[in-house]
Each structure stands twice: as C-alpha cells, then as structure tokens.
C-alpha cells in the first residue's frame, strides 16, 4: 500500500431503494490527511451517500475500496471497526447523558469480571475529558456533566474527539457546522484541521461554501444523486461554487443537462473528469 492509495474509494456506486434510484455511479476517493468537501442541496442524495460510506446501506452496484482492497461492510459496526467514523449534524450525542458515557457509548470500558462487569465510570470520564481537552476544548473538566449543558460546537468536538480516540482513519462529518453560530463553526473547522493534521481522511458535508473553502482540499458537488462537478482547491472561485450549490443559473442548467443526458443514455449520468 503506497502512501498515495486512497484510504477510502467508491467506484461507480449505485444505490436504489426498490424502484427508486438514489445514487448514480458515484466515484470518490479520499487520501490520508486530505479533506474532501461534499457539497449538495437537500435531497441530492448526501445522506444516502454518507450511509453507504458508513456501512448502513450496502451499494446496489459498484464497489467500495478501503486501502485499495474491495470490501463489503456487514453493518455500521463493521465500518467502524475498519476505522470509518460518522459524526452527525447534532454530534450523535445524547443531551441527558454524561460526557463520559457519551464518549464511550457502544465501547464501554469495564472493570470486574464475569457477569459482574461494571462500567468503569472513573476511567471513562478521565479519558473523555483528556481527549476533548486535547482538541482544544478546555472548558470541559468534569466527565459527569450532562452533554445537554455543552454548546453545539462543543458537542461536535466531543463527537470528533471520540472518533479520533477510537482510531478513526476516515472521518465523515455530516453538516457539522449547519446549526452553529460563526464562532462555534470556526471552532469546529479548527478541529477539522486538527484531524487532518493527524493524518485522517475527512469527508466534510456542508452547505456553506466559506466553511468548505476554509478546510477543503478537494470538492465534489452532488446533484440528484450524481456527481456534477469534481475539482481541487483553487480550481474554482467562491462565486462559481456558490452558483453550483446555491441554485443559481448554473445549478438549473446542470440539473437540466443531467436529466437530459440520463434520458438519452439509459439512465447513466454524464462522465465527470475526476480531479486527482
């Protein structure tokens, strides 16, 4: 495995739910230490794509490669074991649970033996606080505090810190900044950069072009379940990207042309030159 092999790659992935085709021939690759920004409007198929990457859905056609090896995920847990972690919009955290329990959910540290294994609260709290502080959130000092008392940005950071701690190599961030204020969002973006510096492959899903431009190395625009544009940092201006995403003329043109193309090409979307 060379250093240049993508950590995760999709090749011509289709996903259908019964008669409804949601994803069309998606090809993507992300390398270690790289941030791929996935841009797209609501209903573009972003969440289906995320769930396919996270092992929740199996692709109908096409293949997923991890470190260049084709694999099939047996479920979200399997994807996690292979180092693919997803952090959802609200952090996937539980407001009425303590920070320590949230951090270790599904991977609880235990002490004792046999049927009397107990949740090791002290250890969980200590590690959770340490890891979150490493990510630059110094306000969290007590692992017994409820997550509900944290700000949106802190919850995201907690979830990202959790993924990093559990050995994530691919971090899928589903609109982490969508519900946040400017300051909080900046915080999350710093943490995305921190994750990138640690050599994680990051897939960053967002609406906000500014946020995408701040951290992204590589961009893909998703429209109607197909990749409509794929380019690297610096290849398009902010205005062009905004136009693509936010439903300007370009967006309408693209939609029409994709639909027209698919009608005349047996449902295949147009080929897009993949930026490498």
């Amino acid at each position: 495995m060379s250093a240049n092999t993508p950590v995760i790659e999709l090749r011509n992935v289709d996903k259908s739910f019964g008669p409804i085709d949601v994803l069309h021939e998606i090809s993507l690759k992300v390398r270690a230490g790289e941030v791929l920004c996935l841009l797209g409007d609501n209903g573009a198929g972003k969440s289906t794509l995320i769930k396919t990457l996270a092992g929740v859905h199996a692709p109908t056609r096409g293949e997923i490669l991890v470190d260049g090896q084709p694999i099939t995920f047996d479920g979200p847990r399997d994807a996690q074991d292979r180092g693919i972690a997803t952090v959802h919009q609200f952090g996937g955290t539980y407001p009425l649970m303590s920070i320590g329990r949230n951090f270790f959910l599904g991977m609880e540290p235990t002490k004792g033996f046999g049927p009397f294994k107990v949740f090791d609260r002290a250890k969980a709290n200590r590690i959770a606080v340490e890891e979150v502080q490493k990510m630059g959130i110094t306000r969290i000092t007590d692992g017994d505090r409820l997550v509900g008392g944290l700000s949106g940005g802190e919850r995201q950071s907690l979830a990202i810190a959790r993924a990093v701690y559990f050995g994530a190599r691919v971090l899928i961030l589903d609109e982490p900044t969508a519900a946040l204020g400017v300051k909080q969002a900046a915080h999350v973006l710093r943490i995305v950069n921190e994750a990138k510096k640690r050599g994680l492959a990051v897939i960053f899903i967002t609406h906000q072009v500014m946020h995408a431009m701040t951290v992204g190395d590589h961009f893909a625009v998703l429209i109607r379940g197909a990749i409509a544009a794929d380019f690297r940092k610096g290849e398009k201006t902010r205005e062009e990207i905004t136009d693509l995403m936010a439903g300007g003329e370009t967006m309408a043109d693209l939609e029409a042309s994709i639909e027209g193309y698919m009608e005349t090409h047996e449902g295949h979307p147009p080929k897009v030159n993949t930026a490498d």
Binding site: A54, V56, P76, T86, H88, F90, G92, T93, Y94, P95, L96, M97, R101, F104, L105, G106, E108, F119
Partner: peptide, 16 residues
Amino acid sequence: SWVFALGGDKESARNA
C-alpha cells in the same frame, strides 16, 4: 448506557 442512548436518539445509537 445503551438503554439511555436508545431513548435519546435511536438513529445515532444504531450508528454507534
């Protein structure tokens, strides 16, 4: 914790 997580957010619990 699983019981609390299930009631807190089933989808995230499943994803975890």
